[in-house]
Design a protein around this nucleic acid. Structure first.
Lengths: 204, 204
DNA sequence: GCATCAACTGGACTCGCAGTACAGTAGGGA
DNA sequence: TCCCTACTGTACTGCGAGTCCAGTTGATGC
């Protein structure tokens, strides 16, 4: 029972590392099996097929990412109670976090699966969709709180602005990956932060 | 000779359509061969392997995309000579163009290859990199022209701002693909347009 | 009217990887 | 003692990429 949990999450650890480095398709089951030190039979005992593995990976990844956002903005809230400043601090922390990632960062699994979506079944695609919708809701809520205090200087669609957080991160990671530079994602977030300052902060 | 050109670009047409719909890995050579009505041998006569196909597709795609940007901003410049307004009009045109795409749009090949990059060789990755650097240069140039006329209200890194155009488009396409909505990319561009207005337009 | 070459066709083969099937085993409860 | 979970190990199917190669067709040069 204990061994089961151990093995399963050991498989997920190995798989996640490999997938983030090379992509899902480029990661073979044999490789995962070798890394996790189990037999092929053992792998298929835990995961029906590669789709089941993808689903489990996504679930875990989304949970971690959500916990990370919770923690980040909770810390930001402690530093400043104003919703705008809380947001600005949170984004700064996020940018720093992305910059600190030593190997370059864990490329976002969401974008990675989105662009190979025909390899996956409906369950995986739906998880992906729900994750992005969750972030939309989270950030839209925060922006509405801000807008209640500071009237935006230009009219904006709040759903789209919520999506922009995910979009800027995803887009930044795509750039970073393609360019093989290190800080594009964090720079993009800082630019987005400047956007929010211009949009909400009262003119001086 | 004429037949050669015909067949080669017929292969590229079929492959591009399939890859944009399903992703590169999910598209088999057999399928391309059937769609282009040639034999497997014929395919390998034109393309050494799938990497050569990817390279040719990317080259063609980047050329088309660059021509599209040239045309778009040339039209915008005709409508208004001011660099800021030209940019704003160009982005509006781009957003409309993305919205009009009937099937949803041609998902950007760049992001698609960036996230499966271990499947490709150095040549493909380098093409990808050069394309993004080209767009950085193009947009940074335009932003510097704007900044020479309108001092930005907040300090921004011009390279990063140039990258933000690509990033917002790529990120928007990832969202659109994952959410199965239709206008995320164009909405994101419109939000970015608002950013530029706030950043450069003189306060009223 | 013959030779040549580019542009193919078609078939047979190898190899790696996903997934199936299933028989056997080690070890911890009830 | 029995049973069940968590495996191991092997042998197999099937698919797609890529190789090899022998043969065909049609335009062009001489």
């Amino acid at each position: 029972m204990d061994q089961k949990v151990d093995t399963r999450s050991r498989i997920l650890d190995v798989a996640e590392a490999a997938v983030l480095e090379k992509g899902f398709e480029a990661t073979s089951i044999d490789e995962i099996v070798a890394g996790a030190e189990i037999s092929r039979g053992g792998f298929f005992y835990h995961f029906k097929d590669k789709n089941a593995l993808a689903r489990a990976m996504l679930e875990r990844y989304i949970e971690v990412e959500n916990a990370l956002y919770d923690d980040l903005f909770a810390r930001a809230r402690e530093l400043n109670d104003d919703p705008l400043h809380c947001m600005l601090i949170g984004l700064k922390l996020l940018a720093e976090l992305l910059e600190e990632m030593p190997t370059g960062h864990p490329g976002c699994v969401i974008a990675s699966t989105a662009y190979q979506d025909r390899l996956f079944d409906e369950g995986v695609r739906d998880l992906n969709r729900q994750a992005i919708l969750g972030w939309r809701k989270r950030f839209r809520g925060m922006f509405e709180e801000i807008a209640a205090v500071y009237a935006p200087r230009e009219p904006v669609n709040m759903d789209a602005l919520g999506d922009m957080v995910s979009g800027v991160v995803e887009g930044g990671l795509v750039l970073q990956r393609a360019l093989r530079e290190h800080n594009n994602a964090s720079e993009q977030i800082m630019l987005f932060r400047t956007y929010l300052k211009l949009l909400f902060a009262p003119q001086h």
